[in-house]
Every structure is written in C-alpha cells, then in structure tokens.
Nucleic acid binder design. Structure first.
Lengths: 345, 345
DNA sequence: GTGAAAGCGCTAACAG
DNA sequence: CTGTTAGCGCTTTCAC
C-alpha cells in the first residue's frame, strides 16, 4: 500500500493541499467545519506527513541528538548515562522530538559522525556531554551553526550554553554533614582529575573543610576514576591512614570502598563512615544503604531538552547556564542515626 | 554562514549539480579528473549534503530506530539494555546510520510515537525489543510497511524476522554444569513468566534435569522478575528448601541471591553453589566472581543492525531467524575448582 | 561521462 | 478562510 500524501487527503476532503497542511500543523486559520472534515479523513486513512519532506520545506527536523564523546562511551557500566539517556528520551517524548543517539566509539567514528551532525538539515540541535579537558569535540561542534547545549560544565565555557548540577555545593553539603557528625579525619576519593564534575566536587570538599577551619591533609585525598574498582583501590590506599569518614565522589566508588573496608574487617559506619554522590539505584538496597547526594538525573535530562529547545527557538545568545541542585539523602553509612551531631553554634 | 548546496559546489567546480551528486554518492560514471576536482572543492568547503533533501529524493533516510516498549523502559537499572544500546550504536556507526532511540514511557508516549515511526519517510527500519506476551506493540508495528527486526523471541513469531540468543541451550548448559559437579538439589530462580527469554531459560533447566534423569521438584522453582531484589526474595524462599545449587536466570538476581545466602550465614559455593546468566560487568569483581552464561550483548546489537539492513535491502521475505550462542564462564560461585566432577560415562 | 529536467512531499508567502 | 504557486536540496532518469 502506497503511502498517502497531503494531496491525497486534500482530494478526499475536497480542499486544497495547503488547507490540509494547515490542519496538520494546527494553524488557526481554518474554519471549524473544514478542519473537522479533514481531520476525519486523516483519522480514517491513518495519514502521517512525510518527515523528510517536512524537514526539507520547513528547515526543521524536530530531531535532536545526544553526543557522548569517546571518553565516556565506556561509562555504560555506570548507571548514570543510561538514566540520563532515559531522561532525555522522556523530554523528547514530551515535545514530539525524535531522539538520536551518537556514541562515539573511536576516532574513526568521530570522523564519520561529526560532519554528519554538524550540518543543519539532519538535527535541529545537539546535546553534548562534556568529556575530558582535552576533548576537542565541544569546541568543534560549538563552532558550527547547530544549536547546542553542553551537559556538564565545559572547561572552556565561553560562548556555550550548558546545564550542570551544582557539584561543588553538593560535595560541600556532603562533607559538612560529616563534619556535623563530628568526624575528625575526613578523606575524599575523587574521580578522574580530567573531569570537571570531579574537580568541582573536590573543591566542595575543600571548601567545607576550610569553612570548618579544618586543615586539608593531602594524604587523605586519593583519586579514582568513577569506577567501582577504582573506589576499592583508593580505599585500600586510604585504610592505613586511618580516616574515620570518607566522601566518595561517586556512588560506584563508594561501593568499591565499602568492599575494601569490609574486607579489612572494619565496620561501617562505626569504624569508618561513608557518603557517596549520585544516588544510583544500588545505593538503596538492604545490604548497602548508602548516604549520598542525590542527583536529579532524569529531570536533568528533561531540563536539558527544554533548554536546547529554548536555544533552538530563541537563538544561542545570551548563553544560558542552568544549574540544578543535589539533595542529601541520609541512610546508614554516614552513621547519622548513631551519633551526636555537634552543636550548630 | 549559509549552508552550501550541491549547486554551489557545482558552480565552484565548473560541473553540473548531477555530477557533484554522483561524486558524493560514489557513482562510478565520473571521470577520475572531474571526481578529483569536485572532491577537492568539497574538502575545502566542508560541504555536507542536506539529509532531509536526500531522504526526500531517495526515499531513504539512513536512519534506524530502536523501540523499547513500556514494559522494559524501567529496565534501565539493569546493565543489559545500556549494553545492547551501545552495540546497536556501534553497528550504526559501522554503516553510517543515524540511530534513534524510542523509549516508550507510558501509554501516551506510545500513542504519539507509534504513528510517527510507523510511516516510511522518517526511518528506514526498526529494531523492536520484545516485551511481555500481551504487548501489542510488535503486532502493531509489524503490520506497517516499515522493515523491522525483533530483538528476542516474539510470542507470535509468524511473519517477523528476529534475532535472539539461545536461551534454552544456555540455561541447559548452566544446569548441566551444575549436574556435572554433582549437585543434587538444583533450584532455579526464573525471570518474569511473561517474558520469552525467561520461559526459554526455564525450559533449558527442565531439559537438563530430564536429560540427567533427575526429576523436577516444583518447590525448587521460584520466580523473580530479573531485578536484584527479586533474586534476594526468591533466594529467601528457597533457603528453607535446602538446595545445594541454584541457577539464577539473570546475574542481577544471582547477586540478590548471594546477599540472601550470605545473610543467612551460608557459604558460597561450599553450602550453596550458584550460576547466573548474562555476565554483567558486576559478575566479575573481586568479591563476587559469579559463574555465569555470557551473552554476547554488544555483538548482538551489531548483528541486529546488520540483519535489519538485510531486511531493508532485500525485503522481509523469507523471514530471518538469527540465534546467537551463549558461553559458560566459570568463576568461583559454582565451586568447580573445589569439586570432583562426576564421570562423563 | 555529463548535463538538463522532472520530481520527492511538504511549507509558506501571497493573492483573493 | 482558502487556494495558487514557488521553492526546500537532492536523486535519478533520459538525452546527448
């Protein structure tokens, strides 16, 4: 069965093609009766306008893309990116957008994908995940005319719009919580040093110590790379230095740390307390109950879509910054239920 | 800067639009010198053909879609779907396809998305994940003219092409392994009873017992729903029935089972042995070391793309079935290293 | 091997 | 409020 066109619907409804087009696009200037008549034919026939023709004529594809650079495509072991993807997908559903996913696997992929998406005609806009500091993807892409929004704080934020979570404040809140619970030697396990979120969380940790007039102990700062096993290794390194609390910059690393702590025969939170970051699904299971900073990941994705839509509609200037808050979720690993908080005065 | 068109390139190279088109599409009948000249202009200008115009004229969009029905969109907590998505994305990269992701969140999404993708013009083809048996998505979509390939064994496989993993054989291999290690009371934790993979794995379990002339004990068959917590609960139920080995139809459930077993003070594999299914990244960590059936998920995604491309190019008939094998990965939880296998005679 | 010309199916002025 | 008309940028016969 051949696909129907506007022309077919027009003929069947006894109107012109333009009128059908207006009906399809909810254009106001169509008389109620005609609209009704046309709508009925559309219903009966199951007509759907051809997307390609539409894009070509209107210069709008109603498609947006998410680009995950090489440096993150392995991250699919972490629940963060799947959840983010889901949020974006829902955001697209809300606005009738088609959502295309570009996972850059290697340099070769990059060379093939970039030209394809950096030209208008395919995509109305781009959501670009920040990667490492030396990642030139964003610079490349933002140089083109395709409207785009960066996910995360870019290292070179000039001229680009981005959405991020308040990583510094989140980390600060986490560490302040630990300080309030009167822990004395608070360590941090950071993510890659090449990642803006990781750096911001480290800053938050430092800020909290500073505000509390504690001094920073370099040996209590150990770096991981956001993976569970890096958390395990980092904790192993930390153990001989006898921290009584640890802030892990990501839940997966916190989970790794838990294993290291338990393996060494220490109890959580009695011997060592722990706070994570993210609130991944695993953080809330019987045998874990991780205190953590919740990121509003799903909402982050939805908001990113809306921000991009704004950039598409109203142009790239002025550049937008949208910073979402995180939320402290108190569970077992911080020991809050068993300790006396220090007075707030 | 205005986007360039074929016409611009034509002018700059001193040839006609058609010739440039031929060069862009690697059409053979272009003289080497002309081709070279045109290619150079394209290089210099960074010209990219407009995707919408191309789709419209050629009736080919070079886009394919992945549809995850409502019943699976919550599955983004399981590593399976992210990995599958990654495999598909890589497959698309290999063939210069644009990959669109449709996550059906609710009925409303479904009503909006289905018409949009079921008409040619937007997508060249569709990859559709099987859901529950009462899911009408596949029936709907496969009734349209859009070429499609189902991921997983559909409940009503007539007339559709699909790709699946040999779930029955995989499960059978897992249980045979347990039998060979001389376990006597082998239990199974199944997935949802509404899922073909789950049913197939149950069949494999039954087949293995039957082949070994063991009789099936109904109380040793407990169902979960593929989640970690369902595995935990199922194992709790199983514990009083004293199995000495358990086949969990998914690694996440195996992990839940591990927690239940350890919590009850039993040792793995000495008191209870365990085999999972999937080989998720977590199955291979210091403190877990789960023996499991590995699914070639990434490759599954890539093969799915290739199968779809075949259907797009050569038509839907005859319908194709592509069944990939799983592989037994022996680690610690099955106790293989500590037990005497029974003789094969 | 190359160019001219006719669309692909739709949108968006512009008349009326 | 509705129809006519001119493209959107590319592919693809069909001549030459």
């Amino acid at each position: 069965m051949k696909d129907l066109t506007l022309e077919d619907i027009a003929k069947q409804s006894g109107v012109s093609r333009s009128t059908v087009s207006r009906v399809v696009n909810d254009h106001p200037s169509v008389s109620p009766e005609v609209r009704k008549r046309v709508l009925k034919v559309i219903q009966n026939t199951g007509f759907q306008p051809n997307a390609a023709a539409r894009s070509l004529a209107s210069q709008r594809s109603n498609m947006i893309g998410l680009v995950l650079p090489r440096s993150v495509s392995a991250f699919f072991t972490d629940p963060y990116f799947p959840q983010l993807t889901q949020g974006i997908a829902y955001g697209c559903n809300n606005y009738n957008l088609t959502f295309s996913l570009f996972l850059v696997g290697n340099k070769e992929d990059e060379d093939k994908i970039l030209p394809r998406i950096s030209r208008s005609g395919l995509l109305d806009g781009l959501l670009i995940q920040v990667g490492q500091s030396d990642d030139l993807l964003i610079d490349h892409l933002s140089k083109t005319s395709v409207p785009s929004v960066i996910l995360g704080r870019p290292f070179r934020p000039e001229g680009v719009s981005y959405i991020d979570v308040d990583n510094k404040r989140g980390a600060q809140t986490a560490v302040e919580h630990l300080i309030r619970l009167n822990y004395q030697k608070i360590a941090i396990i950071t993510g890659d040093n090449d990642n803006s979120a990781s750096l911001d969380r480290l800053e938050g940790y430092q800020q909290a110590l500073k505000n509390a007039k504690r001094k920073e102990v370099p040996s209590l700062i150990v770096s991981g790379d956001f993976t569970e096993s890096s958390g395990y290794k980092a904790m192993k390194k930390l153990l001989p230095r006898k921290p009584d609390a640890v802030f892990a910059s990501a839940d997966m690393m916190a989970i790794g740390a838990i294993h290291a702590i338990q393996e060494a025969g220490y109890r959580i939170p009695e011997d060592i307390a722990l706070v994570g970051f993210d609130d991944v699904p695993m953080a809330n299971q019987r045998h874990i109950q991780l205190t953590t900073m919740r990121q509003p990941i799903l909402n982050f994705g939805i908001k990113a879509v809306e921000l991009l839509l704004d950039v598409i509609t109203n142009g790239p200037n002025p550049t937008r910054r949208l910073i979402l808050d995180t939320e402290l979720v108190i569970r077992e690993t911080c020991g809050a239920s068993k300790r006396e908080p220090i007075s707030n005065g």
